[in-house]
């Protein structure tokens, strides 16, 4: 599914004394099958932007088209297209409510009007896809699970709706390093098995470098940079002005370059850094 964002503008509390422009004239296209990283300072408008992509928020100006259909229309076509866009919020485990894991994961598919059998089948697949043992966990109360498990259940709940686009808002927030890695692996797994288009909002540049093939940078409600991870993270100074970091490997190479060594700085991973350092210092 291709998503096109055109001149998107949103204002909170329009007309009131505390009116704030949350996003202004944002334009970009998400190609089907791509993995887009969305980065920016807290308050730059990332959360507001993603809520427009599946019609949760209606823009003041501009539009979001999914496969050519405006997501805000009240038409059947629009509803169909919205259903294919899955959105996982920050700390999604806070949305769990059912008596059993299976029932909670079935909530989404049920709302799509699918039969109990199909719902359960999808839920099973989704639970396995997020790395849980579907059979073992399906009858347990979601509230009896650990934090990491709860989060996976919540993500499975969105996957069970079989979206074509998956938007994840800081899926590793609050997790310890192991949990963080597990979630990243899960995302890679999901991408591999379902060929989804993924939009990842994150503060972690290493994650973006590892997973994304296209990066969008937001600042103060506007889209200020767009490009491949290598091209974006090479612009060290501009990112620093925006208060953003670069991936650890890139930062290290940039440090070496500043010391005068002829090292490449379009490096994103530890492996690439290793090769380059050996090339110069080995």
């Amino acid at each position: 599914m291709r998503i096109e964002v055109k001149d998107l503008t949103h204002i909170y509390s329009e007309g009131m004394p505390f009116e704030t422009v949350a996003i202004r004239q944002v334009n970009f296209t998400v190609e089907p099958g791509s993995f887009v990283g969305l980065i920016g300072h807290t308050g730059s408008g990332k959360s507001t932007l993603i809520q427009h992509l599946n019609g949760l928020l209606k823009p003041v100006e501009g539009s979001v088209l999914a496969d050519g259909v405006d997501v805000c229309e009240k038409s059947e076509a629009s509803r169909n297209v919205r259903r294919k866009i899955g959105l996982v919020f920050q700390y999604p485990e806070y949305q769990l409510f059912e008596e059993t894991v299976l029932k909670d994961v079935c909530f989404g598919p049920k709302n799509l009007g699918l039969s109990q059998d199909v719902c359960e089948e999808r839920s099973f697949h989704a639970l396995n896809l997020v790395g849980l043992d579907a059979e073992g966990v399906k009858d347990r109360s979601p509230f009896s699970l650990s934090g990491g498990e709860k989060r996976r259940v919540a993500i499975a709940g969105v996957l069970a709706m079989d979206p074509e686009v998956l938007i994840l808002d800081e899926p590793t927030a609050g997790l310890d390093p192991k949990g963080h890695n597990d979630v990243l692996e899960m995302i890679q797994n999901i991408r591999r098995s379902r060929e989804l288009t993924i939009i990842l909002v994150s503060h972690n540049m290493d994650d973006i470098a590892r997973l994304a093939d296209h990066v969008l940078v937001m600042e103060d409600g506007a889209l200020v940079m767009e490009g491949s991870p290598k091209s974006i993270f090479a612009q060290e100074e501009k990112l620093r002005d925006l208060g953003l970091a670069v991936p650890s490997a890139t930062a290290l190479m940039q440090r070496l370059a500043r010391q005068g060594y002829p090292v490449r700085t379009d490096i994103l991973t530890a492996a690439e850094a290793e090769e380059e350092i050996i090339r110069i210092f080995g």
């Binding site: 650890s248 530890a270 050996i278």
Partner: peptide, 18 residues
């Protein structure tokens, strides 16, 4: 354990002979 990036790099480079 969660290692700082520098420690991970140092380990990699050590394995390559530095």
């Amino acid at each position: 354990l969660d290692m700082p990036f520098a420690v991970e790099m140092a380990g990699r480079l050590r394995k390559r002979g530095l």
